[in-house]
Design a protein around this nucleic acid. Sequence first.
RNA 1: GCCCCCAUCGUCUAGCGGUUAGGACGCUGCCCUUUCAAGGCAGAGAUCAGGGGUUCGAAUCCCCUUGGGGGCGCCA
Length: 483
Amino acid sequence: MRVRFAPSPTGHLHIGGARTALFNYLLARKHKGTFILRIEDTDEDRSTAESTKSIFESMLWLGLNWDEGAMPDGMEKGSCGPYVQSVREAQGIYRKYADQLLREGKAFLCYCSPEELDESRKKALVEKRDPLYDGRCRSLTEDQRKAFEAQGRKPVARFLMSKEGSVGWTDLVHKEMKFENKVLSDFVMLKASGYPTYNFACVVDDHLMEITHVVRGDDHISNTPLQLHLYAALGWKAPELGHLSMILGPDGTRLSKRHGAASVGEYRRQGYLPETMKNYLALLGWSNPESQQLFKKGELEEKFDLKGCQKSPAIFDPVKLDWMNGEYIRLLPKEDFLALALPFVKESGLDISAGRVPLIDIVALEQEKCKLLAELPAKVEFFFKDPVYSPEAVAKTLKNPEVPQVIKGIKEVYSALPEFKEAPIEAATRAFAKSGGLKAGQVFHPVRVALSGRSDGPTLFRMIEYLGKEESLKRLDKALTLI
RNA sequence: GCCCCCAUCGUCUAGCGGUUAGGACGCUGCCCUUUCAAGGCAGAGAUCAGGGGUUCGAAUCCCCUUGGGGGCGCCA
């Protein structure tokens, strides 16, 4: 089995593209096949090297390693290259096959200008007719052609579409599919610039690269009949074809920037783990009979199956994504969590040099509550700088009548503690509550707010230990002034 | 205007002629607990888009309607 992911480098790797790449990758791994990455940069205006770089980065981040294709270092891997279409174009690969079809009368040159075409398309739409190419250049005489050439017109090569019959295929996801040829157009294979169009380049390359299974988005369904005609005209066997359902935004329309983050890079920057993205994306449009949600490393590669692919579109659910990220964060060894969190801490500008306890210990305190790496700095910042007292927390717990006495009392207790460690702090705090006839919570809550400014946070006595005696006493004093 | 695809809890989905329509996220309640999470337990939530068939029997098969999505580029 040879599968490929063939992005066009006109932007970052989007969620939909990533899902397509993932499914192809999983398919290859599952069947011990080959996963190929081909760059489809035939859009001369919009393709950029930065996009290619960005796509590579996202692929690698997600762990979607490819076996053949264009590589980030500019080199290539595999024997079916080049894997970049602009490079292939320069080698005349597409021209060769276009010429063949032209020679065989299966294609023809069309001299219509984009403007003329555009106009007749608009007119057709206004008159509520099909905006298909009308075939006006199908049978130009030699004189007409010469006249066009004399005008300096550059022709495009169009495929001569049959108006009778139909094309069909058994889709890997949708089963039987069929299109009447009469709704198909004499599509362009080679642009006036000599560059191939998507439909043409795709077929030529998939064949030459010996792709056995093409798995792509639903939005390509209507391209498929055109490509099937190309395979037939070229005398090639078409690969197996599968079309994945689209990923939609919460409003039911195609997922895009309008819905917030739409590219893999943006999710990365927000602090989602690659494992999360991979797992979550796998569940959009695919499931196994057990409805399994979480997959261990390597498990998707084992269990993925085209049979589990959904025909209907899926709405991207950021809430479930967050849940899943929390699951993966909790799974992390604390060293790994620290390593992952560090860039976010640095990014936040938090000065951690002031800490008297290693960052790893502080960060470990919050790991189990963390859903997004980006939210970690805000959770731990009170360890490194004066707490920001939340008005709600102050109003809720610091305004109780017994609080001043509690804070003053606990301050004395803490300053008298010989060993400022979690266990003794807890013991002393509980003893203090008991002696004052207070419930534990009546002491714990105000102390927490006084020290951290918040009513939620890490396990209390460990937190106090990490804050240290001096700082804790200082904050207790500060809190007194707020009451 | 034409073509194509799709349709099970709010969301992701299981189901593939006979099920109390299952799971997950989210939601509610309880338990645990110093808080917040996490975890455990319980629960609400789907007349399987609607209407016709086929069948002893339909979420499952067929048709129509409706709704949603995609396409009809010298974009991919």
